[in-house]
C-alpha cells in the first residue's frame, strides 16, 4: 500500500492562562491509501486533536505532518485550505449541515469547490438519500443527516475521510447504516477512511486499529478479517 499521510513526533499543548494541557506527546502515525482505520481511545486521550491536526484544521505545537512530501505543520493557511479542499473529507458527530440548504444543495456546496467532484446525484444514491434530496436538515433524522454529511465529504472526491465519532449521536440501527456507507466509500471508491471513536466494537471493521492513551499511541494492530458493519457489537 502507498503511504498517504505521515505524522511524526506530533506534540500539541493547549495553554489556558497558566494552565498547560499536553494533548499529544510526540505521537507518530502513518495512514496508507485505501485503508479503513479506527482510532480508539477514552475521552481526553487526544484522538480528536490528532484527527484535527491530520485534517489541517488545527496546528501541532511541534512535530511534522507530511502529505505528498510537504510538512503541513509548517504550511501557510493558503496551502492548508487547498489541502482540505482537495484531499480531506471531514465527518463530524453532529453533522454540521447547512440548515438553510437542502440535502442536495449541501452536497452541491462541496462539489462546487472541488477540482474533480463526484456527481451529486450519484452521491445521493450512494447514501440512499435520493428521495430526500430536496429536504432541509431539520426535516431529516440524525442518521439521514449523517449520511448527507458523508456524501458531502465524499462529493469532493478527497483522498481520505476523517470521521470524528460519526456514530456517536446515533442509535444502533442508524449507526450501522452510517458505517455501511463509510465502508462502501472505502471499498468501492478506494478512499482512506479514518474513524475515531470510543466504541471498541467498531474496531472490528477496521483494517488497522490504533489505540491512543494520554496523547501517545498505546497499541496498534491489524485485522486480518475485518467484519461487516452489521456484525459490529454496540
Amino acid at each position: 500500500m502507498q503511504e498517504l499521510i505521515r505524522g511524526i513526533d506530533i506534540k500539541k499543548i493547549y495553554k489556558t492562562g497558566d494552565v498547560q494541557v499536553e494533548a499529544l506527546r510526540g505521537l507518530s502515525i502513518t495512514l496508507y491509501e485505501g485503508e479503513f482505520i479506527v482510532i480508539l481511545g477514552p475521552s481526553g486521550s487526544g484522538k480528536s486533536t490528532l484527527l484535527n491536526i491530520l485534517g489541517g484544521i488545527d496546528a501541532a505545537t511541534s512535530g511534522q505532518v507530511l502529505f505528498e512530501g510537504q510538512n503541513l505543520c509548517a504550511a501557510p493557511e493558503r496551502v492548508l485550505t487547498h489541502y482540505r479542499r482537495q484531499a480531506v473529507g471531514f465527518v463530524f458527530q453532529f453533522y454540521n449541515l447547512m440548515p438553510n440548504l437542502t440535502a442536495r444543495e449541501n452536497i452541491q456546496l462541496a462539489a462546487d469547490i472541488a477540482a474533480q467532484p463526484f456527481d451529486v446525484d450519484a452521491m445521493l444514491r450512494d447514501v440512499d438519500m435520493s428521495d430526500r434530496a430536496g429536504h432541509f436538515p431539520s426535516q431529516l433524522s440524525g442518521g439521514q443527516q449523517q449520511r448527507v454529511a458523508i456524501a458531502r465529504a465524499v462529493a469532493k472526491n478527497p483522498r481520505m475521510l476523517l470521521c470524528d465519532e460519526p456514530t456517536g449521536a446515533l442509535d444502533v440501527q442508524t449507526g450501522v447504516q452510517v458505517l455501511r456507507v463509510l465502508r462502501h466509500f472505502n471499498r468501492d471508491y478506494g478512499k482512506t477512511v479514518a474513524i475515531i471513536t470510543h466504541n471498541a466494537g467498531i474496531a472490528g471493521m477496521a483494517d488497522k486499529v490504533f489505540t491512543i492513551r494520554d496523547g501517545v499511541i498505546a497499541a496498534k494492530h491489524r485485522n486480518a478479517h475485518p467484519i461487516p458493519p452489521e456484525e459490529v457489537a454496540w
Binding site: 485534517g55 485550505t81 489541502y83 482540505r84 482537495q86 472541488a114
Partner: peptide
C-alpha cells in the same frame, strides 16, 4: 459560526 466553520473545513478559502 458553525456553517462558516464547516465551509472552511470543506476547503472554502477565507474570502469565499
Amino acid at each position: 459560526t458553525r456553517e462558516l466553520a464547516s465551509m472552511r473545513v470543506l476547503g472554502f478559502t477565507l474570502n469565499e
